[in-house]
Design a protein around this nucleic acid. Structure first.
Lengths: 199, 199, 199, 199
DNA sequence: GATGAATGAGCATTCATTCAT
DNA sequence: GATGAATGAATGCTCATTCAT
């Protein structure tokens, strides 16, 4: 057992929570320190700088999302529509916990940071991983003749993801209007219909 | 004529350019002052605070987008598909100039700002205006029987906008893959197909 | 009349006083700020960094020393011995006010500072100016045949300055032993004797 | 034999090397620890604080200098001029290895340190030891009638030491101009001449 | 009205020192 | 005894904001 049970993971999580609820420049290292319950020096033993911490928080969240999406499908599932429904549910479930992940994901706070090229590269990889999971299912559907090849599968994946995100975002805002499940079903509807092979 | 021909509009534009290219916390009032070519005091005669300036920059950009979208259609146009194509082109044209508007739009920089409720409210109004323009065309299509009523028109508008945005974003990144026009046409394809009234 | 009557000169003087009485790392910018009676930002409007301030303090003191040494001799003076006595008195008078200037001069605090090459160059120039004043008088003496050419005049100047400094330093420490005037006279004695042309 | 063969002496030496090449505030305990190859705790078992370490490093260097100076003269030597030459060579030899010892010696870094009075006292003692070695030879010379009693032997010792130091310093800087041996010989020349008993 | 020098609260970061293992 | 992770006070520096001119 280590002297302290504060792990790097704990810090990432705590910092993540703060960063999802306030803009970068309002999340001070002192607030992080306090939330995590460690000294300032400890923070800097794990992360080179605030920027480094920030980038790694994002990467951590993305890793979890990718992990969750890449979990195997239940064994009896094999039509693309059902697979997409499952992936959508995982995705939306994730958003519901991490409402602001996208703000982070796309945050331009870090633009131009010299030393962070490598981390930024990893962000892109993870984003691609997310897209790829959807893209693969879609390509399968095209190959099976279930979907039209009219829209390239990578673009189709982007479109579908965009609908899901936009939906969960507006669901987050106007709870009255549409709930998550409703949105998923409508996005699936538009997608399935939109990709339908013309007879 | 005033001693200086620097208008509020000039400031909003200059600040907008800076804010689209660097994160909020790296855009100092001094840089804005310098770019606009006025004294610091003058900035503060026009805007209560940096946050106020920021919010008004965003609002200004949104106003222009809304204006552009609300321009009348050419007189001979009346089918929803063509209207959507025209709106899409306006939207994408706008994005191509103001690549980073979305970063601003959705920026969480300002979250929780006490005094800015009113401005934030206006943001929402403008965003709604954007959605409404699309929603109205879609509702028309449903009323005419061109589109299925399966998806509520506001949600359908969100979906369509999301596809456009996601498309232009990825177009910005991987120029090789898909250009703007291609993406618009594919988004329209998915939408038209997806909303098609089942026979 | 300016809004504040705090000038760059005032800052240099105040900072100089602090730096002569405490080591660099114990002189905080806050202490300087407090002593000068300005805000921290004002300090940084005048100096790029603490290091910059430090270098300019030293340069300022050196400038005054050089000025003082370069003042004309009284018109009726023309033998080198008397000139050296006058210079010695100016030098020792300076040290008595600025006891710790040498600590600053030779301080290794700054070694290796990247951006300060230019200032460091100026330090060397001023030091050379000091040596040159003595060297010129000595060379004159050699030319007139009053001094032996055995020791090159630049080295002789270094030797003489070293005696003066070492003397004033020890005078500063053991006041009981030898006072400034006594030391000057003895240093002059050794120099005059040591440089005497053998008959 | 202890588990580690790192002795106090090793630490003093390693720290000395660092302190001669960077200013006090840039030599961190971590760098010392790393260079010595021990844990931080071990450093603090040997030294109360960084200041304590620093003081003891200086003292250690001074001890070696004093040792070196106090070594007996070769048996057949007995005129003061030759003795001074030998001492000068030892001194200059020392400087050539420990170029920056003087920076340390005279460093004002520590001024005012409360707890270090005792160590500071020891510094003074060592410095006096250095002076005394020269002073004794000079006094001998005066007693023998070789040197004039005009300049008190302690002051004469200070003067001579100052010339040596100043010379080695400038030798260090302008290698082209004068080398160590040349300077020693000229300093000796000035001293011998300057102290010569008038006939 | 316009200006920009002055302000000082606020922040990221460092590093001497401690102490549980 | 030795270690080095953890600590947090201390410090250099920034930048939004004010206000005398």
């Amino acid at each position: 057992m280590s002297k302290s049970n504060v792990t790097l993971e704990n810090i990432l999580e705590a910092a993540g929570e703060l960063l999802m609820n306030s803009p970068y420049h309002k999340v001070t290292m002192d607030k992080v320190r306090e939330k995590v319950g460690v000294g300032k020096g400890t923070l800097y033993r794990h992360f080179d700088s605030k920027e480094d911490l920030y980038c790694k928080v994002v990467l951590n969240e993305l890793d979890r999302l990718v992990e969750s999406l890449q979990e195997n499908f239940p064994p009896d599932i094999d039509d693309p529509a059902t697979k997409l429904r499952i992936l959508s549910e995982r995705m939306v479930g994730f958003f519901e916990q991490k409402r602001s992940l996208f703000a982070l994901l796309r945050s331009e706070e870090i633009r131009g940071s010299q030393a962070k090229k490598r981390l930024f590269q990893k962000w892109k990889e993870r984003r691609n991983d997310v897209v790829k999971v959807f893209e693969n299912v879609i390509r399968e559907g095209i190959d099976e003749g279930a979907y039209s090849p009219e829209i390239p599968p990578d673009l189709a994946a982007h479109f579908f993801l965009a609908m899901l995100k936009s939906g969960s975002r507006s669901a987050g805002r106007n709870k009255a209007d549409h709930n998550g499940a409703f949105i998923v079903s409508k996005a699936l509807f538009m997608f399935e219909n939109g990709m339908k092979q013309d007879d």
